[in-house]
């Protein structure tokens, strides 16, 4: 009986562990969501589409940069652009039904999710979520599988196809080198209209709510990134629905939740495999025991 109790208990604990994992997944390998993590509030009603941020971003990441004069060219807005391996941020322009002369310009870059899909998709752990909120890529571990590109709900990570030897995944790193020195991210610093506000995520959410409350006619009642995919470091406010200005419609559940739960559930601390094999063993043992008992009974009868 003791043995049976022990088995029941272990099975129970194992099941609870796996079920627990599916309900409340860990998303980031190390959970580093600090209360003071930083974020940026993007006010798309203020952005004028000067593209100075694109220039500053390239410049501060030591990517060969065309002169700022070239960024005046507004014809690039004719087509929707995505961040590339050589430009971590892009500004896209969308029509404004309220006033055609004031188109809506939207800066776009890595959203630095609180529970990033790329981090959990990476099989070698080369992308990390840091306590200051940034999601950064580490070249030493990367094997170039590009799972992160597939996993990202915003299709942000870009791959250096044209670099045959040691290509890297490139994306916005929240100017980690600059913020370490106490500087602002390059794009935030250069923005002439301060459409980008850099601050603690909790504080910028308050500011965003306050802005919407003050100007209910100017903004729609939605802060993109506050709850989307369990929250992002970059949050947006707008005068037009977000699916009309280039943002994907996403649920509030972080993307890796389901897949990671399964992945972690199957292999978590090797408990499930051990349990599975021990269950098989127990079945075999029970069967064997039954047979032995049968043989004993038969011998007793005879």
């Amino acid at each position: 009986m003791d043995r049976r109790n022990f088995l029941i208990k272990t099975i129970g604990i194992g099941a609870a562990a796996t079920l627990g994992n599916t309900n409340e997944s860990v998303a980031t390998p190390i959970n580093v969501l600090s209360e003071d993590r930083m974020g940026v509030l993007v006010d798309t009603t203020v952005c004028v589409g000067c593209r100075n941020c694109e220039w500053a971003c390239r410049n501060s990441h030591n990517i060969p940069t065309p002169p700022l004069e070239d960024y005046k060219n507004r014809s690039v807005f004719k087509e929707f652009r995505r961040p590339k391996e050589y430009s971590y941020t892009v500004v896209n322009e969308f029509s404004n039904p309220q006033n055609p002369l004031l188109p809506i310009d939207v800066k776009f870059q890595c959203m630095h999710c609180d529970k990033p899909a790329c981090v959990s998709a990476c099989i070698v752990g080369s992308i990390d979520k840091l306590p200051n909120g940034s999601v950064v890529w580490n070249s030493e571990k990367c094997i170039g599988c590009r799972y992160c590109m597939v996993a990202c709900p915003f299709q942000i990570p870009a791959f250096e196809y044209l670099t045959p030897i040691e290509p890297s995944i490139r994306k916005c790193d929240f100017c980690i080198e600059r913020t370490k020195e106490g500087k602002l991210p390059a794009c935030v610093e250069i923005c002439p209209v301060e459409a980008l506000i850099y601050g603690k995520r909790s504080e910028i959410i308050k500011i965003a709510r306050d802005k919407i409350k003050r100007n209910p006619q100017r903004y729609i009642k939605h802060i993109y990134g506050e709850y989307e995919v369990s929250g992002t470091s970059w949050i947006y406010i707008s005068s037009r629905e977000f699916d009309k200005i280039g943002f994907p419609k996403l649920s509030n559940k972080h993307a890796p939740g389901v897949s990671e739960a399964i992945q972690h559930g199957i292999f978590a601390y090797f408990v499930p495999p051990v349990l599975f094999y021990s269950m098989l063993g127990t079945l075999m043992w029970i069967n064997k025991r039954k047979k032995e008992l049968d043989v004993e009974e038969e011998s007793n009868e005879s």
Binding site: P192, E194, I197, G199, I207
Partner: peptide, 9 residues
């Protein structure tokens, strides 16, 4: 940071 800086204003 709730109030725009001078350059932004």
């Amino acid at each position: 940071i709730s109030k725009t800086d001078l350059k932004g204003a």
